[in-house]
Amino acid sequence: MVIVFGTKPAILACAAVTGPLEKRSVFKSYFDTIMDDERFQENTNEKGQMVLVQEACQVLMKKADVKNLDIDYFLSGDLVNQMTPTSFAARELAVSFIGLFAACATAVSSLIIAGLLTELGASNFAIAGASSHHNATERQFRYPVDYGAQKPATAQWTVTAAGFALVGKYHEGMPYMAAATVGKVIDYGQDNPFHMGAAMAPAAYSTITTHLKKRNQKISDYDVIFTGDLGKIGLKLLKAMFAEDGIKSEELNILRDGGEEYFGEDTRFQAGASGAGCSASVFYSYVDLQMRTGRYKKVLLVATGALLSPLSYQQGETIPCIAHAVELTV
């Protein structure tokens, strides 16, 4: 489903806050705050993530010079059971809140909804974004963090990061949403939770091709098409799928991935970064700044999410995935 925004909802400001390990990220100079305690001085991971979300929202409101009373909607989600970190952060924020779950695609699904609310005239300022916390996610989806299991080269590292965007009415010189595609759930039968890139790549492919087709565009119409957290192998797979369609390799270089680049070539992170905070902290810091400085004029942000739970995996289900895309122009 492709949405075309008539009123051009703008991204007024962006903020990204991360945990201490993320100072190894190649994007670190774009992050607003890098905290130096992985639990953010709290006694549980989940409370730490709540502080992470609050801090990112505070930074965002400060940058845009707005108060929480000015915010009409807070749209966000995370990966923890029932999304308590985000909901608890919303309790402190005290604004109208809709919790959203699209796994790591929440960074863009929230942005699309914020754009629609703005388009409707229902919102002047909406905060959209997502967050993830490494330790909280590990224990939720995999093993206790100190368990000595060998991760394969296809595994990805969930980042501790939050990224948020302030969405408002069209504003001269600000990046705005031209169109968006709400993805379909795609399942190509992948079932390895240590190989999420392979599960998510078909969803990204499906959403990107739908968007381009409905908008009558080519890949080369964009300065960059940024996927969220496919990782090193997932991005290769996505490019391989486009290569099968006869897309030339120089055009494939327009495709970039946040998770693939996040930690550079550090092999200790295996196939790269992942998590709802991965796409959010890359999109709402690095990509946003590149648009504001005019390096990119037209960008397609595609956040991908693996819609599994530990339960569904243990019950032998495959991993359905989703990708949401938003077309930004400046």
């Binding site: 093993y143 206790p144 963090v145 100190d146 368990y147 000595g148 299991a149 060998q150 991760k151």
Partner: peptide, 25 residues
């Protein structure tokens, strides 16, 4: 032990120390 496990795989999981690691972690 996590780092040892990433390096050694079954080499640190199969000895009883791996059982201990599973319980303790």
């Amino acid at each position: 032990y996590r780092k040892l496990g990433q390096f050694a795989g079954a080499g640190s999981a199969v000895p009883v120390s791996g059982f201990g690691n599973a319980v303790i972690s």
